[in-house]
Design a protein around this nucleic acid. Sequence first.
DNA 1: CTTCAAAATGACGATTCGTCAAATTTGACG
DNA 2: CGTCAAATTTGACGAATCGTCATTTTGAAG
Lengths: 239, 239
Amino acid sequence: MNLSKSEQKKADREQELLDLAVSILKDDGFAALSLEKLTAKSSYSKGTIYNHFFSKEDCLLALSIRALSSIMKLFLRAIQFDGRLREKAVAIHYAYQLYARLEPTLFMAILNSKAPGMREKASVERGQLLDSLESTINSFSEQMFRSAIATGELTLPTHLSIEVLYFSNWAMSYGTNALMMTAPESKLVNNLDSNTLLLQNISILMDGMSWQPLSKDWDYQKTWQRVENEIFADDMQLI
Amino acid sequence: MNLSKSEQKKADREQELLDLAVSILKDDGFAALSLEKLTAKSSYSKGTIYNHFFSKEDCLLALSIRALSSIMKLFLRAIQFDGRLREKAVAIHYAYQLYARLEPTLFMAILNSKAPGMREKASVERGQLLDSLESTINSFSEQMFRSAIATGELTLPTHLSIEVLYFSNWAMSYGTNALMMTAPESKLVNNLDSNTLLLQNISILMDGMSWQPLSKDWDYQKTWQRVENEIFADDMQLI
DNA sequence: CTTCAAAATGACGATTCGTCAAATTTGACG
DNA sequence: CGTCAAATTTGACGAATCGTCATTTTGAAG
């Protein structure tokens, strides 16, 4: 009771502080995030801030956890899409890109939280929490591939494992989003249709693993649109 | 003459400073790079350092330029591979991964040099140099796809442009390398064969775009090995 | 040797980092 | 309500880094 109440208070404040951290990130960019600034923006003092976060890096890890949680929630919505398994997979890629667009800074924070030296400077508990969250998302995503194989839509190619198939999807999605994000002004990216570039990339990939129905036999542009309209209509308006 | 000599001297010193910056990056990680430390490690004073680099960010851009130049050199060697065009493309992916492994910190520096707020703090000339270097690499890589189409090995799928095909390769390669680099201890990545994971990923992708010969009709593992033995044998020993 | 413009130096104020002794708040108990 | 010990909060502090700029040094030309 007693503990619970004060712990609740602390948890609430942590969320409040993370909100502030996000606003700093958005306003002044990534390098500008400092616990000094967070202190200034908050109504607390430095010692209290450091009571919540071991360090700037620890704070960044906390932001990554928040980001991953949000992504997981989007995934859970995406998988509700009414359609074939390959369409559900497309919906998940859509969700991933949606998050990357809605929260580009937080999306990049996930990557930065893996930079060498980051984990050492953060609290062990937070590191473990982040690990378990990643593990959850990985299991969830791999499950899609197992289901697809179970239904026969997907046949495991010789010499390839489920892990490789999943990883290739992840790499393509991550790579596409990261490159689009960091090279928005580049001539190359500008000439491409940013709304469906990811769809095109994963379509080639899924065709390459013979995930039925192939893109020549199915209108995934339509699927993409349906995902947007039926699942993420509200979120898209925020872009 | 006079100018040339002093300019040469300055250029030499810049390379010397960049070598030092790289060593700081390798030793103490990314966040530890500071012009203060660079000053301490060098035999010059702060003012002189700032005479070379506008800021820490400007230094980072210089490192990115160096990294991209190295990558371009590796690409030029890779394309010498004696084989089909799809094999040459495989060789280029090999080269990209080789660099990511040899110089992980510099590989990541390229990404970080695109973070928001980075360009603003760096010199305009350096930014332009970086842009033109990227443009060169893009053109070079796209040329591979044009050649493949010219020979008939690759047929442009309907509704897809050369740019999309090239970008999908880039995204896959970049995504695979980045994820492998930042998640080396993850259960998922650990269960995969890191030596051929990239090959597997791009094989699926290239199969998806029907780049002949398909992986079921050609032993690209052998190609991968040949690239290593015939082109990059020396470099591989450094890993 | 003298002159002087260019280059190098390092002290400086500002910002951020993480620590810690002192002050304040909390809440259990009488 | 009053007391007091424990927990929490505070903000001053020393160290590191940032970028600037007045002063000193260098070196090339006369």
